[in-house]
């Protein structure tokens, strides 16, 4: 394998797409502002010059049309990648996603393969307000028929994107704007990593233990992994050893790695940037509850997520509803002395 260099997550995604387009002539990209502009968040930077407008296609502002077209093109033997500029915009095209893309394989009795990658930008933290700041991956993971990938760093993003393009099923690929390494937006340095030049894949359904620890497990994903790592460093100074898990994919979900970790630590904090209610954090907590025969908890499970409010525009208000490093560290500290109620 050729030498690694440091890439931003945006560069890593664009490199993955470019390498797959070179390898497979049926791979192409459609989306708004993805050609000349290179994607508003850089996921297709430089690809138009290399592959031309027939394979790097700017679309009209017609998400239903081009995401539905991806489904049709995939059914006819292509491997389309479509970009939904913001996950928040799914409202204008959800029928094409969850009723057509996600269900047609099942409804055809397995005779139809739909190798579509639908990539989209998520997350807040930069005052883009309630309609441009949501994560929403839990909503897509809720619907059967979609694989859901949520990388936290450049290395994973490249391997998971190549895996997504080669998968014969619809894959939703969510990149958080605050870890893409864009020159015009603050981002977490930990997301810019060494990335091998050669193509490689990362299998879906394999969580990564980012940092080992024995006192408390922090389950996270996407940008929240970077926050959890910073929280774990703070906790270490207090003598608390936190284990940080990056789920990497929600569908399929690696429950086993979470169970093994919590069986070791006895404490679980779920750090999520999606809405708290009826979502990922509840799903992980339920998985623990269903396996209390294997896991002995030392304190109740703690969930961090966005409360049931739209993301505010005002910076201090936004910071207060999205879990921050100190919230994760605080949740871990507060668990250490807590005892469970005992059964009668």
């Amino acid at each position: 394998m050729t030498a690694a260099r440091k890439l931003t997550m945006a560069q890593a995604i664009a490199e993955a797409i470019g390498q797959e387009m070179e390898r497979d002539s049926t791979v192409f990209v459609m989306g708004e502002d993805i050609a000349k502009y290179g994607g508003i968040f850089g996921a297709t930077g430089g690809l138009l010059d290399r592959f031309g407008p027939e394979r790097i296609m700017d679309t009209p502002i017609s998400e239903s049309a081009f995401i539905g077209a991806a489904t049709g093109a995939a059914a006819e033997g292509m491997r389309p990648i479509a970009e939904l500029m913001f996950a928040d915009f799914f409202g204008v095209c959800m029928d094409q996603i969850y009723n057509h893309l996600a269900k047609n394989t099942y409804m055809s009795g397995g005779s139809l393969k739909l190798p579509v990658v639908l990539m989209t930008a998520i997350g807040g933290g930069y005052s883009d307000a309630a309609q441009h700041s949501q994560c929403l991956y839990g909503l897509f993971a809720h619907v059967p028929g979609l694989k859901v990938v949520v990388p936290s760093n450049a290395y994973d993003a490249k391997g998971l994107m190549i895996q997504a393009i080669r998968d014969d099923n619809p894959v939703m690929f969510f990149f958080h704007k605050g870890i893409m390494g864009l020159p015009w937006m603050a981002y977490y340095e930990g997301s810019t990593t060494e990335v091998p030049q050669d193509a490689y894949t990362i299998p879906f359904g394999q969580a990564r233990i980012v940092r080992e620890g024995s006192d408390v497990t922090i389950v996270s994903l996407s940008q929240m992994v970077q926050k959890a790592v910073l929280a774990a460093a703070q906790l270490e100074a207090d003598g608390i050893r936190a284990e940080v898990i990056d789920l990497r994919t929600l569908v399929p979900l690696d429950v086993e790695t979470v169970l093994r970790s919590v069986a070791k630590t006895g404490r679980l904090v779920i750090a999520d940037e999606d809405y708290l209610n009826f979502g990922l954090s509840g799903e992980i907590a339920a998985s623990i509850a269903e396996h209390l025969d294997r896991v002995a908890l030392k304190s109740p499970v703690r969930r961090l997520g966005v409360p049931a409010v739209p993301i505010p525009y005002s910076r201090p208000l936004e910071q207060s509803v999205i879990p921050q490093v100190q919230d994760i560290a605080g949740a871990c500290r507060s668990m250490m002395g807590v005892k469970l109620a005992r059964a009668a």
Binding site: T26, G68, A73, A74, G77
Partner: peptide
């Protein structure tokens, strides 16, 4: 209707004479 557009696009790109309806 959107999937038909995609099927037509695929026919064009793959050089087939298929027509989507």
């Amino acid at each position: 209707m959107p999937p038909a557009c995609g099927a037509a696009l695929a026919a064009k790109r793959l050089g087939k004479d298929s027509v989507a309806v």
